[in-house]
């Protein structure tokens, strides 16, 4: 008997869990880069990495307070944006994309190298004491205490992380909303449409791009901070390039250049992914599938579910290119 309530519960838990918070924050940041400014940033994970490692290293290696570590993580993300932007923002879009993906990979390889063991833990993961954060947890904690119903349930600690996490998502989303509806946001969109038009009307394209890169980068850094706190540490393997691609998937699913798109996209991404994975696991457990198929399936549910999400993205691009909340006419407009 397939238990669809269990599948749904699992999917809902993933859709509102800390992973979705992290993805939503990364997508909000990417929306500032790609959605509004047209910056093809393929190194979003690099900002997340610095947010996570900035926090982790500050606390674990230097023994600083978590409340110092978090701003350090965010500041490092901002520094990356500046260091990356100064030489590359004048490049063509495609070259900028290559530079960003390379920068993020270089950071991951350096931080994960054995030479960096004493500072970052190198290839081993780094872990720190995040009790400064969990001490503030207002929810009751205990082996039997669960909030929610069925499989859609969280421990008190998880609930505390996601309460703070979604609050941060709301604040970041609101901040982005406030700045992009202004004339400042109009300049960003004009740069996305045609940078020379913006220039010919007196807009300093480089400065605006830099501001957008820093803002979106710091929001991605915040995603990294949440990640570090959630796991009380960081692991270089958690910051591979696919994190950026998942972020693009979420952003496009929800709707690029919209305020709610990145958040809805992140929720939907994790819901779909977990629903499919959970469904496949149940299929295997029920032994409804022929033995050879279920054997080859077992253990690769995660891979298949990512594949199906990828397929969903392809369908979306074909049939609803504007995403869930995007504007179709705007999307289909001719560039000429």
């Amino acid at each position: 008997m397939m238990e669809f309530d269990v599948i749904f519960g699992n999917a809902a838990r993933a859709a509102f869990g800390p992973e979705a918070v992290i993805l939503a924050l990364a997508a909000i940041g990417l929306n500032v880069h790609f959605g509004y400014t047209g910056l093809l940033n393929f190194g979003q994970v690099g900002f997340m990495l610095l947010g996570a490692y900035g926090t982790s290293v500050s606390v674990a290696t230097f023994g600083w307070s978590l409340w110092v570590g978090i701003p350090v993580g965010l500041a490092l993300s901002a520094v990356l944006a500046l260091a990356l932007g100064i030489p590359t923002l004048r490049l063509q879009a495609v070259l900028f994309a290559i530079a960003t993906i390379a920068a993020a990979e270089i950071l991951r390889l350096i931080i994960g190298s054995t030479d960096a063991i004493e500072l970052t833990g190198g290839p081993l993961s780094i872990s720190f004491d995040a009790s400064a954060f969990y001490d503030l947890n207002p929810y009751a904690e205990g082996p039997q205490v669960r909030y929610g119903a069925g499989t859609f349930a969280f421990t008190g600690q998880q609930l505390w992380v996601i309460t703070v996490g979604w609050t941060l998502v709301a604040l970041a989303g609101l901040a982005v909303f406030l700045i992009v509806r202004s004339p400042w946001g109009r300049v960003l969109k004009s740069i996305r449409e045609d940078e020379n038009a913006a220039r010919s009307l007196g807009k300093n394209v480089f400065a605006y791009r830099m501001q957008a890169l820093v803002i979106g980068g710091v929001i991605a850094g915040l995603a990294g901070v949440v990640d570090a706190i959630k796991t009380s540490g960081a692991d270089p393997n958690g910051f591979r390039p696919q994190v950026t691609f998942f972020t693009y998937t979420a952003l496009l699913l929800g709707g690029s250049a919209t305020c709610t798109g990145p958040v809805l996209g992140a929720i939907l991404f994790w819901f779909l992914r977990e629903w499919i994975e959970s469904f496949l696991r149940q299929l295997a457990a029920e032994a409804w599938l022929p033995q050879p198929i279920s054997d080859s399936l077992s253990g690769s549910e995660g891979v298949i579910s990512v594949g199906v999400v990828g397929l969903a993205l392809i369908m979306l691009v074909l049939f609803r290119p504007q995403g869930i909340v995007g504007n179709r006419t705007e999307m289909l407009i001719d560039d000429g």
């Binding site: 901040a175 406030l178 700045i179 509806r181 202004s182 004339p183 400042w184 946001g185 109009r186 300049v187 004009s190 913006a198 009307l201 007196g202 807009k203 501001q211």
Partner: peptide, 19 residues
């Protein structure tokens, strides 16, 4: 059209959030 207007306060990031 509005993009063309010169010296816009709202085009400064520090002022932009405050309508």
């Amino acid at each position: 059209m509005l993009l063309g207007a010169p010296d816009q306060m709202g085009e400064r990031l520090r002022i932009a959030p405050f309508r």
